[in-house]
Design a protein around this nucleic acid. Structure first.
Lengths: 204, 204
DNA sequence: GTCTATACCCTGATAGAC
DNA sequence: GTCTATCAGGGTATAGAC
């Protein structure tokens, strides 16, 4: 389902040029943002020239869009594997091991609020979809009103916001915030006192 | 206290060139980020040439630093007026009226996690200071352990994170999230059931 | 499919006239 | 204090050889 997009997709297999370029773009956009990264840098990391890169992606903007779409496909595949669940605590645990991914996401989601940024629509839609998914999951698990008195829609927006904000703090100073623990804490507090399975493991 | 910095500060008064340039830089950095903004654009908005601008600020980096420092002074003055309190709910209420300010902050705080960004140190320090201030305020008002069982340090990191994350969502889609309401909700939930003065006003 | 060559514009910054 | 002139470099993108 997430596997076909264009007609034939030249070189999607591992080792394919297209994917190598997208990998390089991910690293470079993470390191410098979209505006701060040149096609030449991406190309060099992928092992070809800037003009060679433009054979696969006709413009810098197209490269960014392709990168974001690929991310969605990977996520969709992963979600399918674990049966459609959206376990935020698990997402956070994984993210701590992948600072690169976290950094592209953090940088691009903020950079894209600027005028005419090519990822504007992407992130607006993504936030909307994400809020809906998390809200639905909360509603299914805890009902239409959480014990804390908070609505599932509010809890969803707050959880997503906190995760993003914590990522920014964490990227600036990885030792300063314990993301998995804090997200766990917030979930516990939102979903009400001593509810939703095993609460905290450690005592403090 | 926050009023002197250099020796004499040429033209700090309203109408002063220096301040006009910083105002322009604020708007332009908000619209395009640091990397996405040229000195020429800032200069044009301020009503002089790029080279004229460089007479006041020797480099683009110096301009950014000056901008961030001025923001701190303004904040410090404002905080002094209301007697050192850090009322987050009030901050959010005000921010909704100033999308420009919110946008520079959001864009720059994320952009500055990139390699070699000139505002890295500024934001790392700012987050650290902010966490400390909010934690201290919570501790003074609610004690060393909140009724919810959450520590003041955790609550501080979460509140700041949620505010920043909500700003990003809000900038992408202003109608999608009610920032003041959501922050209020989070504060209530963190500080425990029906504590901390008047809880929610509306019923729903 | 990948390269060289190159067009064309924008960038931050310097030198120096007025 | 502000401008014109200018530099050296880098940006995206196109044309066309191989």
């Amino acid at each position: 389902m997430a596997a076909e997009r264009g007609r034939r997709r030249p070189g999607y297999a591992p080792g394919g040029r297209r994917d190598a370029i997208l990998d390089a773009a991910l690293d470079e956009f993470a390191a410098g943002g979209y505006n701060g990264t040149s096609l030449a840098k991406v190309a060099e990391r992928a092992g070809l020239t800037q003009q060679g890169l433009l054979h696969y992606f006709p413009s810098k903007q197209a490269l960014l869009v392709a990168l974001l779409n690929r991310r969605d496909e990977v996520d969709a595949d992963a979600a399918a594997e674990e049966d459609g669940r959206v376990d935020l605590a698990e997402v956070v645990r994984r993210n701590v091991e992948r600072p690169g991914i976290v950094q592209v996401y953090t940088v691009l989601s903020a950079e894209s609020v600027t005028e005419g940024h090519p990822a504007q629509e992407y992130f607006r839609d993504r936030f909307e979809r994400l809020r809906g998914e998390v809200e639905g999951r909360i509603r299914k698990e805890h009902g239409d009103r959480l014990p804390s008195g908070v609505g599932p829609d509010e809890a969803a927006a707050l959880l997503i916001a906190a995760m993003d904000g914590l990522q920014t703090q964490w990227l600036h100073d990885p030792g300063a915030v314990d993301m998995p623990r804090l997200v766990r804490t917030l979930m516990d507090v939102l979903t009400g006192p001593a509810r939703g399975g095993k609460a905290r493991d450690a005592e403090d």
